[in-house]
Structure formats: structure tokens, C-alpha cells
């Protein structure tokens, strides 16, 4: 499936921890854990937008992996 744009609200929900999917892809787990840690010290919108782009980019660059496809389906249906 195509990777939805960064403006899709699910990305920011994941970045802020409002949505907590059980990812299979290790890089997704690590980047979400890292974003959560960074947001604990600075919750500014500018930073959140940067993190949303970083998170999405991991899915875009690894979209061929079956695990990533499964994770995308899990979060976007």
C-alpha cells in the first residue's frame, strides 16, 4: 500500500503516543521510542512536525519490506 502523507493525523497520534500500534518492524519501534523520549523534554509543534516526517520517512524508505507492509496495514487499515 502507499504510505499516507505526513499530514495524515495517524502519524502525529503515533508520535505523541496517543496511538500505540504493536509494530513488527524494529526501526519503527526504535524511532517511536526515540521520538517519545525527545518529546518528553520538548513538546513544541515544530519539533513534532520534524518527528512526524522522520517517522513517515522510515516507512517510505522501507516500504518494500513485508513487515513494513503489515505495519502500514495495521495502522491505516
Amino acid at each position: 500500500m502507499d504510505v499516507p502523507p505526513a499530514t495524515h493525523p495517524v502519524w502525529s497520534d503515533i508520535a505523541t503516543g496517543r496511538l500505540k500500534p504493536e509494530f513488527d518492524f524494529l526501526a519503527a519501534k526504535i524511532i517511536v521510542g526515540t521520538i517519545s523520549r525527545k518529546l518528553a523534554s520538548d513538546q513544541s509543534m515544530a519539533h513534532l512536525w520534524t518527528y512526524v516526517h522522520e517517522l513517515r520517512e522510515i516507512f517510505v524508505q522501507n516500504a518494500d519490506l513485508p513487515k513494513v507492509q503489515r505495519d502500514l496495514k495495521k495502522i491505516f487499515g
Binding site: 509494530f23 524494529l26 519501534k29 521510542g33 526515540t34 517519545s36
Partner: peptide, 9 residues
């Protein structure tokens, strides 16, 4: 051990 969205680090 820290929990990175399900990955134990």
C-alpha cells in the same frame, strides 16, 4: 531495560 514501543533496549 527501556521499552521502545515494544523493543526492549
Amino acid at each position: 531495560v527501556a521499552d521502545y514501543c515494544g523493543a526492549m533496549i
